[in-house]
Nucleic acid binder design. Structure first.
Lengths: 157, 157
DNA sequence: TGGGATAATATGGGCGTCAATGGGAATTAT
DNA sequence: ATAATTCCCATTGACGCCCATATTATCCCA
C-alpha cells in the first residue's frame, strides 16, 4: 500500500515531538524517508502533510507560469512560503511548528487521517467530527465517486 | 529539497548583518555557496534574492524577447543594472545594501519568504500581509494544491 | 491452541551539535 | 586615519542523535 490510509491518535511529548504513524512512514518515498512537508490546509483548520516528492511536482507546475506575472508571485508565495519541511528522527518522530499547532487547535494529542496521497493532522475531537461529517455528507447527497468526477468535468468546461 | 521554501524572521545586528536562513543556504548551488544575488522586486516593495545560476536563466529569457523591442531594453536595464551580488560571511550572514533596505522599508528585522527558485525579503509586518493576501486569493478562487496540479495536467493534454 | 518468547511501535529523557546572534580584533578601502 | 568589512570566538537556545522503557503486536513451538 503506497497510500496514506486509516486513522491514528498519537501523543505530543514535552519536547513537542509526535510519532508519524508507522504505516504512514512506510509510504514515504525511498529518497525522502525522513522528510515530510507540512502546511496549513486550505480547506479546514487542520494541518496537511505529504512527502517532498509531491512538492517537487507542484513546484514544476507553478514555475511554468509566466516568469514576471503577479499570478506567479502570488502562487509561489501561498505555496512555497507556507511549506514547512520537517525531518523525522530515528524513531519516526517530528516537531509540529507552533504556528501550525495553533492553526489546528492542537495541544497534547493529535489525530492523523489518511487522505490517499496526503494526510491530515487534526485535534482528536475535531477529527472525529470531520470523519462523521464527511461521511454523512456523502451519504445524504448520494454522491459517488463517479458522480463527483462528472461534476468536476462540468465545472472545468 | 532544492527550493527556497518556508518563512523565517531574522534580526539585523548593529553592524547591519543578517543571517540567511540555514535552509536557504543549503539551496545555493555548490559553486556559489557563499554568494547570493539581490535586487529590487519588480512586483512589490520587497527585495528578491537568488543564486547566480538563476540570473543566467533570466538572462536567457530576456534574450528570447525581440531583440529590438523596448520591452527587451527595459527588462534588461531594470534587471541587470539593479543586480547586487553579495557575499555571505563564514556564519552565513550578509549585508543588505542601504538602498534595498529603504526600498523594502526594512530596519531591525526582516522576513525571508521562500518563492521556489528565488526568495523575497520583506518587512515582517508586510510579509504577513503579503502571505495572507496570496493565501486568500487562492482560497477565494477555490484553488487547492491538488487543483493546481490537476488543472495543469488538463492543459498539458 | 495456549502461552511465553520476540519484535516493533510509541513514548521518555540525557546530551552533544548547530543555527542565530553578539562583539572584539584584524584587514581592507578610501 | 577613518570607516567599512571580514574573521574569529563566545553565548544561547533549539534541535538531532542516542539510549532506555513500555505497551502492543507477531511469532514459534510444545
Amino acid at each position: 500500500m503506497d497510500l496514506f490510509v486509516s486513522l491514528f491518535v498519537n501523543k505530543i511529548d514535552k519536547k513537542g515531538r509526535i510519532s508519524l504513524p508507522s504505516l504512514f512512514r512506510s509510504v514515504l518515498s525511498k529518497g525522502s524517508k525522513n522528510e515530510i512537508i507540512l502546511y496549513k490546509s486550505l480547506k479546514s483548520q487542520s494541518i496537511e502533510g505529504c512527502d517532498s516528492k509531491r512538492i517537487n511536482e507542484i513546484a514544476k507546475r507553478v514555475n511554468s507560469l509566466d516568469f514576471f506575472s503577479e499570478d506567479q508571485d502570488d502562487f509561489a508565495t501561498s505555496i512555497f512560503s507556507e511549506i514547512i519541511p520537517t525531518n523525522l528522527d530515528k524513531e519516526g518522530r517530528f516537531l509540529i511548528p507552533e504556528s501550525l499547532k495553533t492553526y489546528a487547535g492542537i495541544a497534547s494529542e493529535a489525530t492523523f487521517i489518511g487522505q490517499g496521497h496526503y494526510f491530515q493532522i487534526w485535534h482528536p475531537k475535531a477529527a472525529i467530527e470531520k470523519q462523521t461529517r464527511s461521511r454523512n455528507r456523502l451519504v445524504k447527497e448520494n454522491k459517488s465517486l463517479s458522480n463527483i468526477i462528472l461534476e468536476k468535468k462540468q465545472n472545468d468546461k
